[in-house]
């Protein structure tokens, strides 16, 4: 078989497959984008799942329509509102790579039955790879109303329990991030079972590093929100639209 034939064959072959794939790619791109959007928004709603009707069975469209009702703003590290940036488009993985002072934080306010919950985003490092979570605060901006966590590659059965074990995130409910006098004193993840009546949640046995990662991430990122939370508190009319 001659070289020309080989070349012609490979050219035809590669162009056919490139055409098929390009066509399919552009045809499915909008659906893939919607899928990704729903996936991310569902994760954010996970922090307030106890206050969303039937969270486990929400359809994609329901997720999007609930999210349309949510107030969202992007803020910078000084607590200023950034008008040009849409909060649900902020990618924390990218933000975490920036120097601390330049990071942009998404902030969501979910209102249901006359009560408002403020959802803060966090991202840090577990044992292997990135971990992230969403913490919902009650309207006193002090008590945690709900939390959800996820991870990129923690060990199944150990570190991955931060996502798989409902009770880990459920333990955050009712814990606080500020003392009564307003000092920043966020909830900690204990090594092993938490002592009763302290501001700590149970750690996961066998996954101390992941647990510490969650603790560090929560402490660090909730503090990023402090300037903005102070603004809300000093402004009796909560300045969100």
């Amino acid at each position: 078989m001659s070289t020309t034939k080989v070349i012609i064959f490979s050219l035809i072959m590669t162009s056919i497959s490139a055409f098929i794939l390009a066509g399919l790619f552009y045809a499915t791109a909008p659906m893939a984008k919607k899928g990704e959007e729903v996936f991310n928004k569902r994760a954010i709603l996970g922090a307030v799942k106890n206050y969303v009707d039937d969270y486990e069975n929400l359809t994609d469209d329901q997720v999007l329509s609930i999210f349309d009702e949510i107030d969202q703003i992007a803020i910078d590290m000084k607590g200023n509102t950034l008008k040009d940036i849409q909060a649900d488009k902020v990618d924390l993985a990218q933000e975490r790579k920036k120097p601390e002072a330049d990071r942009i934080l998404p902030f969501f306010k979910y209102t249901t039955g006359g009560k408002s919950y403020y959802i803060l985003s966090t991202r840090g490092k577990g044992l292997w790879d990135d971990i992230w979570g969403y913490i919902a605060l009650e309207s006193d901006l002090r008590t945690i109303a709900g939390a959800s966590f996820d991870h990129k590659g923690e060990t199944p059965g150990l570190g991955a329990e931060i996502k798989d074990n409902e009770s880990f995130s459920a333990n955050f409910i009712g814990k606080t991030i500020y003392d009564l006098d307003g000092t920043y004193n966020p909830v900690m993840v204990a090594k092993g079972p938490a002592k009763p009546n302290t501001n700590t949640v149970d750690g996961i046995s066998g996954a101390t590093i992941t647990g510490d990662g969650v603790g560090d991430m929560v402490v660090k990122w909730l503090e990023y929100y402090e300037p903005y939370l102070d603004k809300i508190k000093s402004d009796s009319k909560i300045g969100m639209k």
Binding site: T14, S17, A18, L21, A22, L24, F25, A29
Partner: peptide, 9 residues
């Protein structure tokens, strides 16, 4: 163009 779909090939 977005060529990410050619990654595997």
């Amino acid at each position: 163009m977005d060529l990410t779909f050619l990654r595997f090939i």
